[in-house]
Amino acid sequence: MPEVLTLAARDGQATGPEADPSSPLALRGLTVSYGEKPALFSVDATFPAGAMSAIIGPNGAGKSTLLKASLGLIPRVSGQVTVFGQPLAAARDRIAYVPQRASVDWDFPTTVIDVVLMGRYRKLGLFGRVSRAERALATEALARVGMDAFAGRQIGQLSGGQQQRVFLARALAQEADLYLLDEPFAGVDAATERAIIDLLKELKAQGKSVIAVHHDLSTVTAYFDHVFLVNVRAMAEGPVDTTFTPSALAETYGGRLAATQLADLALTVG
């Protein structure tokens, strides 16, 4: 549990401690609810800059909700979101979002390169021409995920892992500073998982911040620097070494994590 439980604030009135301006994503008293049942209650979080952070928790704990509320995709009941110390609307250019693969219709009439170019639409505006430079940038983003040979393919012909790579390339094309990924490794093949993690580490090396909803507890220590454990409330937050502990996990997951799984994790966490 967080040290001080912030009071739920209405309409973005700050109640907790001031947000750290260097943090790529800071949440204060964030409450989101579907109907009368809060999916997230008074969540505080401060994600570190230039690091890879994982959002971890059981099914239905509000992991994806946290990401979506941070992006303003679903309304907040209360609380504040600051991105690099700014309100969300002022920082849109610095955020790239990679939604869950299953969230779109892959039979949509578009090609791989066109999807990646969608990442440029905000900068292109309504009338901007898709110049050769824009196209080159999109092609380079595809090359970084190993998909440049697929540029002209209809997106319906891709495998699950390839779809995830295209979504990542679209985010890369935005040239953002903060990458928010919703279960990027769900249902992808082993090679894609490796390609994605290599790329994310590369982004980190360039000083970018990565925050991912993650479900595979066995890879947390290998992939991430920072963890945020959530189960409707914020359960624990901090560096993987000190925060990703069997006791914190037991508290976050309640009875939903088998004792054997915890024992296995204790070994990997060491």
Partner: peptide, 22 residues
């Protein structure tokens, strides 16, 4: 024709469009 980009974005991936500020 003027609105083809935002309309394409929203039709294909409304969540992503909203995250982009559309």
């Amino acid at each position: 024709w003027v609105l083809r980009r935002p309309m394409t974005l929203v039709s294909f991936d409304a969540g992503y469009a909203a995250a982009m500020g559309v």
